[in-house]
Design a protein around this nucleic acid. Structure first.
Length: 809
RNA sequence: GCUCGGGUGGUGGAAUGGUAUACACGAAGGACUUAAAAUCCUUUGGUCGCAAGGCCUUGUGGGUUCAAAUCCCACCCCGAGCACCA
């Protein structure tokens, strides 16, 4: 073994060796081993691995490696979420082909990922932009289409004027495009949707069965937005007092019905265009109403939903409605503070019980009626449940995505592309990718000709591509059967792996990817394609790594930490272990990158290296092989080694439990404590120490192996060190995870704290399991205790086994 | 406004009813060195004290308990999600 810990040489060597030995290739079945599926969100091939990727992939690798050593058959796959806008934007800016840009980035990033030394099973790699992959994305889309879960409709949709494409509701954050921050506007367009709303109730109620952080569950609950209420019907009367029809309002407060002094309909309400603005209607201010509707349309979502904005509206003159509870005639307004796409698009206004209605009533001098609440008023309506969740808008007017496998006949009626024509290839003869409001694919001559050739003259292709969140809604299923040429995945094969045991990723996907995947999986379950209704049993959301200045890393701030540079300087093991040490992994906190912390980890590893060398170089007699250190004739360990053995077993327990809970930081600190003790007894340091036994050090190395896989394998296999004891010609990562012995964790002696009125006044050492009586007696004779008791009367004594004697005076 | 997290040394954090500040960083002092780096040793929450030791301290104020960072109530602050959703 070399004197110097040369991370560069070691890491290169072992990465190569692991790859040659196919160490992490996972079979679907291994006799005597239980399968375990641990998943990380696959990256977008942006072209460069940043420190966030390291945090996302290298730290969960600790977990995967541990599980493998614990005897599970672990699948830990990786791939690329390769469709998406950046490729297209690069194409527009630099004139490169998005395909070329993407695949070059993937090649480069794969190299970077290799330098991480993760135990990924690369043989299962998926790339969503590969025709072999998106063929099945299309196939699944058509399955949903056949089931009526994918449909096309004209609707008012979110439009990003900068990306020049529509967006799903989930991709609009505070009225802005999630991608580019441009203000989103509304457009009436014919678009493709998934009927995620059919699953609103299931998506909500099944959350209870998931071992997910509360944070995600509540985010999804908020997003689904269930509310139970009543639909009340108000009869409409025109100026001649004829009853024409009824207008439905949705309310969660039917008990306030007596206080309704007017009704409001949203500007989008179909009743306005179909009846009110109709030439036959007797409305006196049609023009005014039409003008108001037009004004609303021009507003952005932000303008319209700004609460501080003064409310506006127009009375519909010539009709009144009748309160079903008391027969009162009340006016009807159109106002944009009522939303067209929630509830029934109309409300009853109760100014005395609703602030918004009060604001409006004040402005337009409408009456405010004080009332007593009456729960019985519900009988005038019908109980209904409404959700805020909207259908998932899936089409995008962009190029670099999965083509929607639909064609239109000469009448414009949509037809699915037959399965034998899948993959329905993305045309390659598109040159201009600049977004113009229509997909760039519309310029493809090849696609138009392809459609006419297959389907006949006058047939036209669908030009839109799919939202990339569809690609990522089933990638975890494909990992289970990534080479399947006949179907997206084999159901029996899925059974071996699904549902995913552990899934870790970022909080930004709480109401996007995680919601979409659940929907998709539920739909596939109902189609009989998968075996269960939920894909991810346990989800862990990770924290965020900030720049050294505590700010979000960004090129403009100049606080970006380059992982390649760090790996070059201190090694992959150090970078990975530092990230694990920075704080608890399973919390959505934010941790600033701290170079000092990196140094601390590097020091720790250097010390391990040194101790390994010393264990080896110790001359024969003090080096007792295989647990033989300093034993008496009867085979008992000396005092020092016994203490150490006790600490070792405690450390095994702590590290094992902490890894299970993703608390890698405290697992590392436990190993540091152990190392501090190991150093004290190795001969190279304090001469009065006792020799370290080899099997203790081996156990320590195994605990460290998932954290510092390269270095530990090097020590493990070093021909001049541990091999002395006749072992270790194969990887340490194939070793069994150490088990702790409960009997060895037990302390012979414990420190009993003596408290008086809950304050610590003294302590003494006693045998474990000391009785209450004995402990009291021992405590009472202590001078420190007597001093504080001071002849006062002891009213009560509290005894906590092996911990505390507390006298209350 | 509603919902969910969170607030502990100079810093990242540990402890989820039982000795608060583990572990690491930083800082100070020392050893080695011509010197520096590296390494090793010691100290390191505040405060009073020569010392022994005392008192105080987990955002603030109350409460429950023999005992509270931890449980309860109110408030303040930070982060995240939702939000004119009737």
């Amino acid at each position: 073994m070399q004197e110097k810990y040369d991370h560069k040489e070691i890491e290169k060597k072992w990465q190569k060796k692991w790859q040659e030995d196919n160490l992490y290739k996972t079979e679907d079945e291994v006799k005597g081993k239980e399968n375990f599926y641990t998943l990380v969100e696959f990256p977008y091939p942006s072209g460069n691995l940043h420190i966030g990727h390291w945090y996302a992939f290298a730290v969960p690798d600790i977990f995967a490696r541990t599980k493998r050593m614990q005897g599970y058959n672990v699948m830990f796959p990786i791939g690329f979420d390769a469709f998406g806008l950046p490729a297209e934007n690069a194409a527009i800016k630099h004139g490169v082909d998005p395909r070329k840009w993407t695949y070059e980035n993937i090649a480069y990033m794969e190299k970077q990922l290799q330098s991480m030394g993760n135990s990924f099973d690369w043989s299962r790699k998926v790339i969503t932009s590969d025709p072999e992959y998106y063929k099945w994305t299309q196939w699944l889309f058509l399955k949903l289409y056949e089931k009526g879960l994918a449909y096309k409709k004209k609707a008012s949709v979110n439009w990003c004027p900068s990306c020049n494409t529509v967006l799903a509701n989930e991709q609009v954050v505070a009225g802005k495009c999630e991608r580019c921050d441009a203000e989103v506007i509304q457009k009436d367009l014919e678009q493709w949707f998934f009927k995620i709303t059919d699953y609103a109730e299931d998506l909500l109620s099944d959350l209870d069965n998931l071992k997910w952080p509360e944070e995600i569950k509540t985010a999804q609950k908020n997003w689904i937005g269930k509310s139970e209420g009543t639909v009340l019907k108000f009869e409409i009367r025109n100026s001649k007092s004829e009853i024409k029809e009824k207008i439905k309002v949705f309310t969660t407060r039917a008990d306030t019905l007596m206080g309704a002094t007017y009704v409001v309909v949203a500007p989008e309400h179909p009743w306005l265009t179909q009846e009110i603005l109709n030439s036959k209607s007797e409305i006196r201010n049609k023009e005014e109403i039409q003008k108001y509707i037009n004004q609303t349309k021009q507003k952005t979502e932000i303008e319209r939903t700004n609460e501080k904005k003064e409310k506006t509206g127009v009375e519909i003159k010539g009709v009144k409605v009748i309160n079903p509870a008391n027969g009162e005639e009340i006016p009807v307004f159109v106002a944009d503070y009522v939303l067209g796409n929630y509830g029934t698009g109309a409300i009853m206004a109760v100014p005395s019980h609703d602030e918004r209605d009060m604001d409006f009533a004040k402005k337009y001098n409408l009456p405010v009626k004080e009332i007593t609440l009456d729960w019985d008023l519900q009988k005038f309506g019908q109980k209904v449940t409404k959700y805020k969740l909207r259908d998932w808008l899936l089409s995008r007017q962009r190029y670099w995505g999965c083509p929607i496998p639909i064609v239109y006949d000469p009448e414009g009626k949509p037809h699915p592309v037959p399965k034998e024509n899948l993959p329905w290839l993305l045309p390659e003869d598109v040159k201009d990718f600049a977004p113009k409001g229509e997909s760039p694919i519309a310029t493809s001559k090849e696609l138009r000709e392809r459609v006419e050739k297959i389907f006949g003259e006058g047939w036209k292709p669908e030009y839109d591509t799919m939202d990339t969140f569809i690609d990522s809604s089933w990638y975890f299923l494909r990992y289970c059967d990534s080479k399947n040429k006949n179907e997206p995945f084999d159901k029996l094969r899925l059974k071996k792996w699904m549902p995913v045991n552990r899934y870790s990723g970022g909080a930004e996907h709480n109401t996007m990817h995680l919601l979409y995947s659940r929907f998709f999986h539920k739909a596939l379950f109902d189609l009989g394609l998968v075996n269960e209704s939920e894909p991810f049993i346990k989800r862990m959301n990770r924290a965020l790594i900030l720049g050294p200045d505590g700010q979000k890393m960004s090129k403009s701030k100049g606080n970006v930490v380059d992982p390649d540079e760090m790996v070059e300087k201190v090694g992959s093991d150090t970078v990975k272990m530092y990230l694990a040490f920075i704080g608890p992994y399973n919390e959505t906190g934010q941790y600033p990158w701290d170079l000092g912390g990196v140094v601390g980890i590097r020091r720790f590893l250097e010390r391990v290296w040194k101790i390994a060398a010393k264990v080896n170089n110790t001359p024969k007699p003090p080096l007792n092989l295989r647990g033989g250190a300093e034993r008496s004739e009867a085979g008992e360990l000396g005092v020092g080694n016994k203490k150490l053995e006790n600490l070792l077993h405690k450390t095994i327990k702590k590290v094992t439990e902490d890894i299970e809970n993703y608390k890698f930081n405290t697992a590392i600190s436990a190993m540091m404590i152990l190392l501090n003790e190991l150093e004290k007894i190795t001969p190279h340091q304090k001469s009065q120490g006792e020799p370290l036994t080899l099997d203790m050090f081996e156990t320590f190395l195994k605990l460290l192996a998932p954290f510092a896989p390269h270095m530990t394998d090097e020590i493990w296999n070093s021909p001049t060190s541990l091999k002395l004891c006749g072992a270790n010609e194969s990887s340490i990562h194939l070793e069994e995870w150490p088990k702790y012995d409960e009997s060895k964790i037990k302390e012979e002696n414990v420190i009993i704290v003596v408290q008086i009125n809950g304050k610590v006044r003294a302590q003494f050492e006693a045998e474990t399991g000391i009785s209450e009586k004995e402990a009291q007696e021992k405590a009472l004779i202590m001078p420190d205790v007597q001093k504080w008791l001071d002849d006062k009367e002891i009213k009560k004594t509290i005894f906590v086994l092996n911990k505390i004697v507390n006298f209350v005076v």
